[in-house]
Structures are given as structure tokens and as C-alpha cells.
Amino acid sequence: MELANSRFVPASQQRTWNKLIAPETLKVCITGCETLERVSDNEYLVGLRADVGPVHARFKGRLKLTDMKPPHSYHLQFEGEGGPAGYAKGDADVVLEPEGEGTRFAYKAHADLGGRLAQLRPDQAEKIARKMTDNFFSLFSVCADKTFERNEQAKVMKVPVEPDPVVAAHRSEILSKVSWLVVPGVIMAIIAYHTFMH
């Protein structure tokens, strides 16, 4: 399965990079993610529950980032095992570029599926992967939003910030769903991690 696309993230390139490699952010943004542990500067262990079409299972996976050029790009390798449900493995290239006041997040990923996952029709697997990617970016954009960045900086500087009612309402609505929205990788089930890649 091949996936390639780009999304706009309303945050600076550096902040987008920082959030993208932060375990606490990824755990919130990856659908079905139950555990995400950084075991080294560029490697993560992931535990997630995935409902991929007719396949329902828990996966254990490993993500490794290589060729890192912060805050511009990296190469991601992933693999996950779900017992009888099957496995997913593959890789992805992620590139971040400044765009206006935000960042253009581009990715190209490839995944191989085995076991019951491999029985999904190509169009069904792609539809599921794209839905998971959409969920990931919806949550990630909220976590990385520059509005919240300014609020965080103000807290560090101990300067009170008046909350924007619209932003606050939107954030409350999104965060109320966080416990139900947890994604395999952009690309592990989407790629089946983090797609599920990614």
C-alpha cells in the first residue's frame, strides 16, 4: 500500500517538529494508541488497539526515526505484530516546510500487510488508512496550533492571556473526544503506525 499527501499545520516549523516527535502528543493523536514509550532519542515502542475493517486486535510495534534533519525531515521505519490479526511493516518519509504562518507537512509512505490485514481489499485498506490519517491530523493540528503556542509561552513568562472563546470551545470539543480517538501510526494500520507511519 502506498500513501502520499501533504497537510497544513497551523504552527511554526520548529513547534510542528517538536510536537511530532513528542510521545505525549503522538499518544493522543494516534487512534487506538494505548502506550507509546520512547526507548531512545529516535526509537519508540507502541501498543495500540486497532479496529481495521473486520480486524480487531492489539498490536505491538516499534518505530524508528533515521536520517533526521530537524526541523526539516526524517525517515520513519515501522513494524507491528498483531498475532492472528496479522502484521504491518514499512517506511515513510516526512518533510516539513514553512508556509505562511504555519507549516506544510508532507509524507510519502509504503506499507506491507500480512495475515488477516492482507485480506482487506486494496480500496478498503486505503479508505481506512486515509480516515485514520485524517483523524491524526485533526488532533495534531489542535495540539500544535500556534494559538496554544502563544498561550504556553505566556504561561512560562507568567503573563495572563485572555482565552479566545471560539478557540476554547473548539479545543474543549476536540479534547473531550481524545480518550476515544487514539490512531495506529500515521501510517501502522495506516500504515498500520504512523499509518500506523506515521
Rank of each mutant, 00 (worst) to 15 (best):
M1P: 07
M1L: 13
E2R: 11
E2F: 08
A4V: 07
N5C: 10
F8E: 12
Q13W: 11
Q13M: 13
Q13E: 13
Q13C: 10
Q14W: 06
R15Q: 15
T16H: 04
W17V: 03
W17P: 00
N18A: 15
K19A: 14
L20T: 08
L20M: 13
P23N: 04
E24P: 00
E24T: 07
E24I: 01
V28R: 07
V28I: 12
V28K: 09
I30Y: 07
T35A: 14
E37G: 00
R38K: 14
Y44G: 03
L48V: 14
R49Q: 13
D51H: 13
V52Y: 04
H56Y: 07
K60L: 12
L63P: 00
K64F: 01
T66N: 05
M68E: 11
M68K: 08
K69L: 05
H72N: 12
H72S: 12
H72E: 14
S73Y: 00
H75Y: 08
H75V: 08
L76C: 08
Q77D: 09
F78D: 01
E79D: 11
E79C: 06
P84F: 12
A85V: 05
G86C: 02
Y87N: 11
A92L: 01
A92C: 06
D93V: 02
V94D: 03
V95C: 05
E99H: 04
A111S: 10
G114K: 01
A118K: 08
P122V: 00
A125Y: 00
K127I: 03
R130V: 03
K131R: 10
T133F: 07
F136R: 01
S138E: 14
S138Q: 12
F140D: 02
F140C: 02
S141T: 14
V142D: 13
C143S: 02
C143W: 00
K146T: 12
T147G: 06
R150A: 14
R150S: 13
N151Q: 15
V156Q: 15
M157T: 03
K158G: 11
K158M: 13
P160W: 07
P165W: 02
V167P: 04
R171E: 15
S172Q: 15
I174Q: 12
L175E: 15
S176Q: 13
S176F: 10
K177R: 15
K177N: 13
V178R: 09
W180L: 14
L181F: 12
V183I: 10
G185F: 10
V186E: 12
M188P: 09
I190D: 11
Y193G: 12
